[in-house]
């Protein structure tokens, strides 16, 4: 083997592989092994049940929508935080991290209290026909809440390091503000937005604590897939719980790989540096 400049390659790689194996792969392998009790036929049967299908649809559909919303709103918020100086900027900046720090159950209870028909917002929204608590809309809201910091925190350093001169150049070349944003700024941010999207998506798919409080968990309507798993566990039906877990894992993996491929494609200009 060629001598390397940095020492410890063998040690660090060995450690990384062992660590990943123990912390990530081993539990997943155990999950798959447990799921094999019901077999492929069992999984297919599970998928055919309308209740499972509805829950998966809500979990993944809601998570995709929430991640998309977070990307749009997150871009605007990050833009304001990075590009403008205003009183309270630091406080706003600190607030962004709160969904990270809050126990998710607390967040769920708080959201429910606000949006319940007798809550601060719910009191006004419900008469307008907008029911948030105990509906899919509530699920979406909780998913947006927990995923939001991921978009802002991934985008912030990239937006800060954007060269302002590039925008100046676009302007002197005759581009309008909108053209500069769409043709110059946005394309350089897309890879990072996709990273934020993937993180927010993963978080929303896996979210349990905050969602179940506001969702109301009405089967076929506002019941998320992780809740189904917990219910199976409560019934000591470990094999079915594991099978559901494997299904979710597979969907998540496919989605994340797709996002990652898209990200590579949008970064093609940086990938092939001389």
């Amino acid at each position: 083997m060629r001598r390397r400049v940095l020492p410890g390659f063998g040690l660090s790689l060995g450690f990384a592989v062992t660590y990943l194996g123990l912390i990530v792969l081993l539990p997943l392998a155990a999950l798959a092994w447990k799921a094999s009790d019901v077999g492929l036929a069992g999984i297919l049967k599970l998928l055919a049940s309308p209740r499972t299908l509805a829950a998966l649809k809500l979990s993944f559909g809601g998570a995709l929508l929430a991640a998309g919303l977070n990307v749009v709103v997150g871009l605007m918020v990050t833009w304001a935080l990075v590009r403008y100086r205003f009183p309270g900027r630091r406080i706003l900046d600190a607030l962004i991290d709160l969904p990270f720090a809050l126990p998710t159950a607390v967040a769920g209870i708080a959201l429910t209290a606000i949006y319940a028909p007798n809550g601060w917002f719910g009191r006004w929204l419900v008469p307008l026909g907008i029911q948030v608590a105990y509906t899919p809309l509530g699920v979406l809201l909780a998913m947006v809440f927990v995923g939001f910091p991921f978009v802002v925190r991934t985008l912030q350093p990239v937006l800060q390091s954007l060269e302002r001169e590039v925008e100046d150049a676009a302007e002197t070349l005759g581009a309008t503000g909108l053209q500069t944003f769409l043709r110059v700024v946005l394309p350089t941010l897309v890879p990072t937005l996709l990273t934020g999207f993937a993180l927010a998506l993963a978080r929303a798919v896996g979210e349990y604590g905050s969602v179940i409080f506001i969702a109301g968990n009405i089967p076929l309507r506002s019941e998320i897939a992780p809740l189904l798993i917990v219910q199976r566990l409560d019934e000591f039906d470990y094999a079915t719980a594991a099978a559901l877990g494997v299904v979710m894992l597979t969907f998540s993996l496919v989605l994340l790989v797709l996002v990652s491929a898209l990200q590579r494609w949008t970064r093609r200009w940086a990938e092939q540096s001389a």
Binding site: E163, E165, V166, A169, T172, V184, P187, T188, W269
Partner: peptide, 13 residues
Amino acid sequence: VGLVFQHYALFGH
């Protein structure tokens, strides 16, 4: 006007 910057300011993408 045409403006040329010290650090090029090219559109990297």
